[in-house]
C-alpha cells in the first residue's frame, strides 16, 4: 500500500515533528533534538522500492515494515522522520542507525490508514488556506 501527499504549492504550511507525535499519540524512540524540525508532507508505504521511485520531498515515512533498510531508504531520500505503525518495534540496531543518520523514530499503536488519516485531517497535505475547510 502506498499513499503520497504533498503539501503546498507556492506556499508551504509546515508541521513540527512534535505535532506529529502528539497527533498520532506516538512514542518517541530517538531524535529528541529534532522535535522542532518542520515537515510539509508525508508518505506511507511498506515498499521501500516505491519510496525510492516515487517520493519527492516528503519529510516523513509512515510504515509497517521494520528493518534497517527503512532507515537507510529514508536517509537516502533526505526524509527526517520515520513512524512505525501497528506497534512495530525496531531493534536497538535500527535505533542506533537512525541516530547515526539523524532520523527521528516514533512508534504508534495506530494502523497505517488511521495514522495517515489523522495527519491528513490535521492539515498535512493541504494548503494552509483550506486547513479548516
Amino acid at each position: 500500500m502506498t499513499v503520497f501527499a504533498v503539501r503546498g504549492r507556492m506556499e508551504f504550511a509546515l508541521m513540527k515533528i512534535h505535532e506529529i507525535k502528539e497527533i498520532l499519540g506516538a512514542e518517541l524512540l530517538c531524535g529528541d533534538e529534532s522535535m522542532d524540525s518542520d515537515v510539509y508532507s508525508a508518505c506511507c508505504s511498506d515498499m521501500m522500492s516505491d519510496v525510492l521511485a516515487y517520493v519527492k520531498d516528503q519529510g516523513v515515512l509512515i510504515t509497517g515494515l521494520v528493518n534497517p533498510q527503512v532507515i537507510r531508504t529514508a536517509s537516502m531520500m533526505d526524509m527526517i522522520c520515520v513512524v512505525f505503525v501497528r506497534s512495530k518495534t525496531p531493534s536497538d540496531e535500527i535505533i542506533k542507525l537512525a541516530n547515526d543518520c539523524g532520523i527521528v523514530v516514533m512508534r504508534s499503536t495506530l494502523r497505517a490508514f488511521e495514522a495517515c488519516g489523522l495527519l491528513y485531517t490535521a492539515g498535512l497535505s493541504r494548503l494552509p488556506g483550506d486547513r479548516n475547510a
Binding site: 511498506d46 515498499m47 521501500m48 522500492s49 516505491d50 525510492l52 521511485a53 515494515l65 528493518n67 533498510q69 527503512v70 531508504t73
Partner: peptide, 14 residues
C-alpha cells in the same frame, strides 16, 4: 524479497 520492501522492478530505471 518483497516482504523486505524491495523487488518492485524500479531499481534499474531509477
Amino acid at each position: 524479497i518483497r516482504v523486505l520492501g524491495f523487488g518492485a522492478g524500479m531499481g534499474l530505471p531509477n
